[in-house]
Amino acid sequence: MLKDMTIGQYYPGNSLIHRLDPRVKLLGTLVFIISLFTFSSISAYALATVAVLTVVAVSRVPLRYILKGLKPIFILMLITILFNLFMTPGTAVLQIWKLKMTEEGIRFAIHMAVRLTYLIIGSSILTFTTTPNSLTDGLESGLGWMNRLHVPVHEIAMMMSIALRFIPILMDETDKIMRAQEARGADFQSGGVFHRVKAMVPLLVPLFVSAFRRANDLALAMEARGYHGGAGRTKMKPLVYHRKDWIAFLVMAGYVAAQILLRIFVKI
């Protein structure tokens, strides 16, 4: 069930995109998403399409694999499109009972669909090509300036990386508890969705108890190894910008400039 989710997973590889500094990729994703919402003409979307396809090609992650990640949000997208189609006021194109489909609605719906799709694709390229660890490293050093605003950046990054480390362990544990309960007659398989969800509730108590015990042990182990927060810590793998990262920044700037030029000179 959880294994089918490709969204948010790492796709091992050694492409140029994989080797870029995570901070570059984070900024790139951010710039791309912002551009989707600020430049919303047909030409802008065309440029965004070219950009996305180029990055995907360079990253060597199969396009099919990326599109599979869109599946879980398909329903969300459908609802967004329907709402936009029928709830936007304007000139009616089609009327079904009391619902009016408007011209503005159609335009809006297309915009939303494109934006959502590209948003997901853009952010999945980031997670496909960046290990969770370098992602948190990138966030930690990329957002280091927020320390001055008293945001505990290091602590948040540490929590994220520990959470990522424990996901498979807790999944294993859930599996074990499920089997133990099944052995004593619990039924997780039959019945409707509601019934099955209800059957999961007794799983949560032992799972939480064990998660807290693990947290306690881990805190002790971290303390025993001299952990005392982010101050005075050195890095085993410090992030350093290389030439390819600077070039990537330039490409990014080029993309934004092209979008602005399109907006000024091309009126579609």
Partner: peptide, 13 residues
Amino acid sequence: MVFQNPDNQIIAS
């Protein structure tokens, strides 16, 4: 110090 449960003392992935 090395503790009993190997899973609960490995911090990095």
